[in-house]
C-alpha cells in the first residue's frame, strides 16, 4: 500500500481527497500546514507528496524544495493549487515538482496522476 502525504490547509479539500484516495487503496497522512508536513519528511518516508502551494507557516514551494533535497529516497511531488498561471506552474516545475494540477480539479484525474507518478519511479 503506497503512502501519500497530503498537505492542504482547506479541511474540505483535505477530507474530500483523503476519502477518495483511501477508497483507491492508499494510506493517507494529512497535514494542515507546511510546518507539520516538514516533520513528516523523515524515515519512513512517504511514497508520494501531494501539496498545495498556499500554506500556513511554510509555503508549498519550500516543501517541494525540501522533498527534493531528501537524498535517501526519490519522492515524487505533485503540486495542486488554485494558482493556475503559467509563471507559477513554471516555478514549481523548476524547483523539482513532478506534476502540477490546477484547482478546480477532478478527483479521478488526480488519482490517475498519482498512480502514474508512482509507477514511473
Amino acid at each position: 500500500m503506497s503512502k501519500v502525504l497530503l498537505i492542504e490547509d482547506d479541511t474540505l479539500i483535505q477530507k474530500t481527497v483523503h476519502l477518495k484516495l483511501k477508497k483507491e487503496g492508499f494510506e493517507v497522512i494529512c497535514c494542515p500546514d507546511g510546518k507539520e508536513a516538514i516533520e513528516h519528511l523523515v524515515s519512513p518516508f512517504p511514497d508520494i507528496v501531494l501539496t498545495d502551494l498556499m500554506l500556513p507557516y511554510i509555503s508549498g514551494l519550500e516543501i517541494v524544495g525540501a522533498v527534493k533535497a531528501i537524498k535517501e529516497k526519490d519522492i515524487p511531488v505533485i503540486v495542486f493549487s488554485s494558482m493556475g498561471h503559467e509563471h507559477v506552474v513554471e516555478e514549481a516545475f523548476q524547483l523539482g515538482a513532478d506534476d502540477y494540477i490546477t484547482k478546480p480539479f477532478s478527483l479521478s484525474e488526480l488519482t490517475i496522476r498519482i498512480k502514474k507518478q508512482l509507477k514511473s519511479k
Partner: peptide
C-alpha cells in the same frame, strides 16, 4: 457557502 467552497475546487462528475 459550504457547498460553494467545496465545488470551487472540483471539476467533472464530483462538481
Amino acid at each position: 457557502d459550504l457547498l460553494i467552497n467545496t465545488k470551487k475546487n472540483l471539476l467533472g462528475q464530483a462538481a
